[in-house]
């Protein structure tokens, strides 16, 4: 079983998140591996452990600081770390990013076939959930998204997905791109031995040229959208906080009625 997991370097949810020149501000201090990618790493490790053989690759795309994301994956136990680091990648939209990731996946797949690419359900900065679909289309692999259960047998992957209107079971032949939700598993914590090993573990760094991707096909220049304005929203004004001394329920009702909400 050979699996590649994509991990994204995103600002910590608890940090002050912001935009700089139309892009999400990412710093080494506040950045981490996207929390939802932990479920993807866990899924990959469990599948390889259950199969009793195999390897897990973690791949990230981004500037020099993004290496923090694959270091975190190494701490969790993945075997190989890959980092596509190239100035030209900055400002890519989802389609440019998919192109770059697909090129990296194909490079590994060309060395020895991969069975799966596993991703988180969304990145907690952008939250669009579009990358897994774009990647599957770019690779022309099977697309199995939003898995809350995942099994692999007889050259096929099968997932369950919980949508607003239905619970579906979907199967598709390998290789497949699978995105997983936070319902799928309970991610492990890094252990001391792996944390120490992750510090010294080698990270393979590739540029777009190494992947044979034309710089004009990725990055801000290829993006189909441009952020023209980003501004912090003002905090809510005139907030009221009361401590219940016996009539707070009545006060709340009056507030709702005055606002035309009840």
């Amino acid at each position: 079983m050979r699996i590649l997991v994509t991990v994204k370097h995103t600002p910590d949810l608890q940090s002050q998140r912001s935009f700089t020149d139309g892009r999400v501000t990412r710093t080494a201090e506040d950045g981490t591996m996207n929390e939802l990618d932990e479920y993807a790493v866990e899924a990959a490790l469990q599948l390889v452990e259950a199969a009793g053989e195999g390897e897990v690759y973690a791949l990230t795309v981004g500037g020099p600081d993004a290496v923090a994301a694959v270091r975190k994956a190494l701490q969790l136990g993945v075997h190989h770390a890959l980092h596509v680091s190239d100035e030209a990648v900055g400002g890519s939209d989802v389609f440019g990013t998919a192109k770059v990731i697909a090129a990296a996946v194909n490079k590994i797949h060309g060395e020895a076939p991969l069975d799966l690419v596993i991703t988180g359900m969304a990145a907690l900065d952008g939250l669009t959930s579009m990358l897994p679909t774009a990647l599957a289309a770019e690779l022309d692999w099977s697309q199995l998204t939003l898995a809350s259960a995942l099994s692999v047998a007889d050259g096929e992957a099968t997932i369950e997905r919980h949508l607003a209107d239905a619970h579906e079971t979907v199967s598709a032949p390998l290789p497949a791109v699978v995105s997983v939700t936070d319902e799928l598993n309970k991610p492990r914590f890094p252990n001391f031995k792996l944390i120490m090993a992750a510090r010294k573990a080698p990270v393979t760094v590739w540029t777009l040229e190494d992947l044979g991707v034309n710089a004009a096909d990725a990055g801000a220049g290829a993006s189909r959208t441009t952020v023209v304005d980003a501004s912090e929203r003002p905090p809510r004004a005139d907030r009221v906080k009361v401590t219940d001394t016996g009539d707070a329920g009545t006060q709340l009702a009056d507030f709702l009625i005055e606002k035309g909400l009840a």
Partner: peptide, 27 residues
């Protein structure tokens, strides 16, 4: 949650909600 609430009540929902319901029905 109080950092983003327009109207916050520090209290038990089991006390507050019945009173709110009664008041809305009354009005």
């Amino acid at each position: 949650i109080f950092e983003i609430a327009d109207f916050g009540v520090v209290g038990s929902l089991f006390d507050v909600i019945p009173q709110t319901i009664e008041r809305i029905k009354e009005r």
